[in-house]
């Protein structure tokens, strides 16, 4: 079973509560650049360098485009040279810091820019589907859900 953060662009008002919650929880700060949930302006492609990927378009009429790992594509896991990335017991894709050598290859293969890095930090980071942002979101634009893995 996969646990993931479902996003509804049309409900997002851009209040950035989710990014604050995320970065306070994981980085003891309030910096959207360190958030694992991204609130992008609608219509803009994410910063990923991969073409032909999903997640470029936002919902019609939305002002913002929310991006978080879908916990399913697993391209980062395949690319990781040390097998530091795998599905955890919780059902989310996790980075095992003990094994990670910080090469950032995973960041470059993520088709939607959900694998994140921050200059000078040792490890990349990503949404682990903890749900903290979903609980805090005032407009229910984020929701923690489960799905079956497609073979």
């Amino acid at each position: 079973m996969i646990k993931y953060l479902a996003t509804s662009d049309e409900k997002c008002k851009g209040c950035m509560t989710c990014t604050s919650v995320c970065t306070r929880l994981y980085f003891k700060g309030d910096n959207p650049a360190q958030s694992s949930i991204l609130v992008n302006p609608a219509g803009n492609a994410p910063e990923a360098g991969v073409t032909g990927a999903s997640g470029v378009a936002s919902s019609a009429g939305a002002t913002f485009h929310l991006v978080a790992c879908d916990q399913e594509c697993r391209r980062c896991e395949k690319e990781c040279p040390t097998q530091a990335i795998s599905r955890g017991k919780s059902g989310a894709i996790l980075i095992e810091k003990k094994k990670c050598v910080g090469c950032l290859a995973c960041v470059s293969v993520c088709p939607i820019g959900a694998m994140r890095w921050y200059p000078g930090m040792k490890f990349p980071f990503k949404c682990v589907a903890c749900g903290a942002c979903a609980v805090a979101c005032p407009t229910q634009a984020l929701e923690l859900k489960t799905k079956e893995e497609t073979p």
Binding site: V50, G102, V107
Partner: peptide, 28 residues
């Protein structure tokens, strides 16, 4: 004990930025 910055680079963020730029160029 390999880590991302075993060289103790003078400016590790720039090493990361340059590396990531080339990773992306390769992927693309």
């Amino acid at each position: 004990g390999l880590t991302n910055d075993e060289n103790n680079a003078a400016d590790p963020a720039t090493v990361q930025r340059l590396g990531l730029k080339l990773h992306r160029e390769i992927q693309k």
